[in-house]
């Protein structure tokens, strides 16, 4: 479904991704781990289409279509979703109104009519219950004054609303206490199906106790230096990243 081939990307002439290869099939959960500065968040942003990064070589394609010239919003319409490490605050726009705008713009992008109001309300109710989100929370300004946990829960709520094909969770576990982590992970697991895929980007193994990956990849210096199954994550947790760095240096 998502295919990344020899992906090189730079920002201001500084190369951050140096040849990434990754294939994600429907129904799979991939974890991407790695030390700080290895390029994890850059990879997430490049997949979602952030223009600040220049793809200098290689490609990202979704269902066989090269995404090179596809704008971020169009990628979203095609089913790419990025849960942000640092969601942006938008004062004066409530979570509900933001979601309505996002859903209807996405539908417009796919040539569909606006979602009828009653259907929208039903969907909002259903998905907010899934993430144990309070009704009052939905009328607050988007991310404004939200705690770290609320922001992340709200990201997964948006994911639930938009029902993407490929969801990339960028450090979704950072800033979460154990209860919030459980709620978020439970939400992600309930949204999983044989038709969609999740890429979990994380520094720690903690989240992977709840969202169990089929594959674990270690990113170092802009390259995937090791891939394995979930045991690799535990090994990393135990031994840290130094041995990977040494292995990669050899």
């Amino acid at each position: 479904m998502l295919e990344i081939k020899n992906l090189h990307a730079s920002v201001e002439d500084k190369e951050i991704l140096r040849g990434i290869n990754l294939v994600v099939n429907p129904g799979e959960v991939h974890a991407i781990m790695g030390p700080n500065g290895s390029g994890k968040s850059t990879l997430a942003s490049v997949i979602a289409g952030k223009e600040e990064f220049e793809v200098t070589q290689g490609s990202v394609s979704l269902d066989g279509e090269d995404l090179e010239d596809v704008a971020p919003e169009e990628r979203a319409h095609k089913g790419v979703f990025l849960s942000f490490q640092y969601p942006v605050e938008i004062p004066g726009v409530s979570v509900t109104n933001f979601m309505k705008t996002a859903i209807n713009e996405s539908r417009k992008g796919r040539g569909l009519e606006d979602m009828p109001a009653n259907e929208m309300l039903k969907l909002i109710r259903e998905k907010s219950e899934l993430l144990e989100i309070d009704r009052k929370f939905l009328s607050r300004s988007l991310n404004e004054g939200f705690s770290g946990g609320e922001k992340k829960r709200n990201e997964i709520f948006q994911m639930a609303m938009l029902a993407p094909k490929v969801a990339i969770l960028d450090e979704t576990d950072s800033g979460l206490d154990i209860d919030a982590l459980r709620i978020v992970a439970n939400g992600v697991n309930k949204l999983k199906s044989k038709d969609n895929a999740v890429i979990v980007i994380t520094h720690y193994q903690r989240l992977l106790d709840y969202i169990v990956p089929d594959f674990v990849h270690v990113l170092h210096n802009g390259k995937i230096v090791k891939s394995g199954c979930k045991e690799l994550a535990m090994e990393l947790e135990e031994k840290g990243y130094d041995w990977i760095k040494q292995e990669a240096a050899v």
């Binding site: 979602a48 979203a76 979703f81 942006v88 992008g109 938009l162």
Partner: peptide, 13 residues
């Protein structure tokens, strides 16, 4: 960054 956030939710530029 804020623009990218909104665009990534399917909202055109």
């Amino acid at each position: 960054d804020a623009m990218f956030y909104l665009q990534s939710r399917g909202i055109p530029r």
